[in-house]
Simulated scan of single mutants.
Amino acid sequence: MITLLFFAGVRETIGSEMLMIEEKQQTIAQIKEHLLNTYPTLSLQGVMVAVNEEFALDEDMVKGNDTVAFIPPVSGG
């Protein structure tokens, strides 16, 4: 299984802080596409992705037992 973690607005849109998806090697882009198809109101514009606590690009591969975090931009004052 691949663990997906969501933060801030992404978590609010999905309605959960974590999802598990079938163990299958795929790219970050494929995971994003799956999420956007499943949650039509979801926006991943500007969202950073980390795999196993290291920032990742859309073409990076994810495999079973990996943890993928979706981190939206944050602002503060």
Rank of each mutant, 00 (worst) to 15 (best):
S75Q: 01
N65L: 12
A69P: 03
K63D: 11
I71D: 03
P72Q: 01
L35F: 06
S16E: 07
S43A: 08
F6R: 01
E33A: 15
E59R: 14
K24D: 07
L35E: 03
E59S: 15
F7L: 04
V74S: 14
R11P: 02
V47Y: 13
P73V: 10
G64C: 11
I31V: 12
F7I: 02
M1P: 14
P72M: 04
V10M: 10
S43H: 07
A69Y: 10
L5G: 09
M1V: 15
D58A: 13
F7V: 07
P40K: 03
G9K: 11
G9F: 03
E17F: 00
L44Q: 11
T13E: 07
M20E: 15
F7E: 01
G77L: 00
I31A: 06
L4M: 09
P73S: 13
P72A: 06
D60N: 15
E59C: 10
H34C: 06
L42P: 02
S43M: 01
T3F: 14
L42M: 00
E23K: 13
T67I: 14
V74C: 12
V68G: 08
L19H: 04
M18V: 06
V10S: 07
I31N: 06
N52C: 13
E23L: 06
A29E: 11
I71C: 09
T27K: 13
N52A: 06
V10Y: 05
M1S: 15
G64M: 13
E23I: 01
G9D: 11
T67P: 06
V47M: 12
A69D: 05
I31R: 10
D58L: 08
N65T: 12
N65E: 14
N52I: 00
S43P: 04
L19Y: 02
M20C: 02
I28H: 02
